[in-house]
Simulated assay, not measured.
Amino acid sequence: MTLVTITDPRSAAAEAYRTLRTNLSFYSVAQPLRALLVTSPAGGEGKSTTAANLAVAMAQSGRRTILVDCDLRRPAQHELFGLSMSPGLTSLALDEVTDLPLQKTAVDGLWLLSSGPIPPNPADLLGANRMDAVIAQLLERADFVLFDAPPVMAAADAAILGAKVDGVLLVIQAGKTRRDHSERARERLEKAQVRIVGVTLTNAPKDSLIGEYYG
């Protein structure tokens, strides 16, 4: 997993994340997205990398951005940014800390709320009323909040948390994601009355014309 928006900002891949940022910004002009959850049908499809790079792209555009690692089963964001796992979201949700334990990243305007210690009951923690208060706190501190959630087919977490935010971005990987998994993931989210704002494709074949333009 790499942060191409930092390591190679002039690449076609980094530009793709900026395009995704623009598309999300224009998704609803009347009611702009401020709290977005990123998930995937199954594991290993690139949802954590997508969430991290999108968060960087948002911050680079001048928005105060907070990235929250809500994958309380296999957290990865602290490793991507080289930061601490604890204290984090679970510490806050369990009232072990009172202030938001945000960590400043190397990107101006971007903070990380890492997962914190892995709890025995992630779905219960994410579905509790305390989580509503945490989301409200985050929105007071940032222009845009991104939540990295577990895959839809692996746990109920994404559907539970997705109902609390403005929308969900579903990440699928070219050549890997099964069509039936994508359809079942969409059905599960819609059944939970989650607003799916779009689907993004990872590992897509490189367009030679775009590659030549960006060198």
Rank of each mutant, 00 (worst) to 15 (best):
M1R: 08
M1D: 02
D8S: 14
A13D: 01
E15V: 03
R18D: 00
L20V: 10
R21A: 07
L24G: 01
F26P: 01
S28H: 14
P32D: 08
G44N: 10
G44K: 10
L54D: 01
L54N: 00
V56E: 00
V56N: 01
G62S: 04
T65A: 08
L80T: 02
L80M: 03
S84R: 13
T90Y: 02
T90C: 01
E96H: 09
A106Y: 09
V107Q: 00
V107R: 02
D108A: 10
G116E: 06
N121L: 12
D124I: 14
R130K: 15
L138K: 04
F144T: 06
V145H: 00
V145Y: 01
D148K: 05
P151K: 10
P151S: 04
P151R: 09
V152K: 04
A156W: 13
D157Y: 15
D166L: 14
G167E: 13
G167M: 10
L170P: 02
L170W: 12
L170E: 03
R179H: 15
D180H: 15
D180F: 13
R184Y: 11
E187L: 11
L189Y: 05
L189D: 01
R195P: 13
V197I: 12
L201S: 03
N203Y: 09
A204G: 02
S208I: 15
G211Y: 11
